[in-house]
Design a binder for these strands. Sequence first.
DNA 1: GACGAAAAAGACAAAAAAATCTTAAAATTT
DNA 2: AAATTTTAAGATTTTTTTGTCTTTTTCGTC
Lengths: 153, 153
Amino acid sequence: MFSKSTEYALRAVIYIAKWSSESNKLGIEPIAKAIDSPKSFTAKILQKLTRNNRLILSVTGPNGGFYMTEEAKETSMMKVLMLLEEDHIITKCVLGLQECSETNPCPMHSRYKLIKPLLKDMFESKTIRHLIEELDEENITLGNVLSIGRKQK
Amino acid sequence: MFSKSTEYALRAVIYIAKWSSESNKLGIEPIAKAIDSPKSFTAKILQKLTRNNRLILSVTGPNGGFYMTEEAKETSMMKVLMLLEEDHIITKCVLGLQECSETNPCPMHSRYKLIKPLLKDMFESKTIRHLIEELDEENITLGNVLSIGRKQK
DNA sequence: GACGAAAAAGACAAAAAAATCTTAAAATTT
DNA sequence: AAATTTTAAGATTTTTTTGTCTTTTTCGTC
Ligand code: FES
Ligand code: FES
């Protein structure tokens, strides 16, 4: 559904939202370990997200790291996807036509148009806050169980 | 949603289903032109699909080309996706965890699990036959309107 | 059997995505 | 101000995906 970068970004954002605050910043090392992603690559991705300071904030130096404000934690997943410029599930055509629309639909369109709004709604209605609440539930996770104890890159 | 290869494959399959028969085979040239895809690349993709002779058939030589039997046109889109080994929308996790399941769900799972069956149903219930019938409707297309008259690669 | 038309096969190239490594900058502590 | 810790930036590499080109094989026709 999404590219690796986006998957890492989403997991990282949720993790940061869950465990950080203005007074408790998280380093890239623990983040990457927790969400089971390549460290430097994840750093790159987070850097991009800190650029406009809309979602994730960061400070350098000792006790520095990444964090989010309580306000930012209310952001919808749809907004996060837009920041990542990965909202194609909502915009693109199943068969890869240049645009998915009523004007020039593909043969799958009549069926897909019924599902697309549901997908969109899923990402619009879920905020980061909702997801970190899910993380309190039993079993729910951001890393791969299988990878526990695996060597970190 | 899908890779370029898969998009080309799906469009090509639908096109072949629509315009070919045992007595009327289609060359790669007209196929690629109609679905607006790179010719040689599409040839590669179709070759893979003819390997097991399950969906598309081909013959070399004069009056040769690609075609489908009437029987094959009853194949569901889900089966086509499986032949292409691209059924990840149905199997993979939104956040990229190694598996999407109740055992070890991600925080999006509780919501996504409601939509996944709908997506699956969409591909399972639509057969190629259904899609070629759609193509009879006004406006419905497999190529890009914008690309009409564009130079072919 | 030679010729031509088609797909099949395979080598190669380009572009994009994913990942790593190195150096710089920033901030804190001493 | 030096040392340390952390992210930022950038260069580079690797892998995957996409695309092209050339040669081979197959088959029908003359
Ligand atoms: S046009 Fe193809 S899904 Fe809408
Ligand atoms: S586990 Fe992530 S969507 Fe099911």
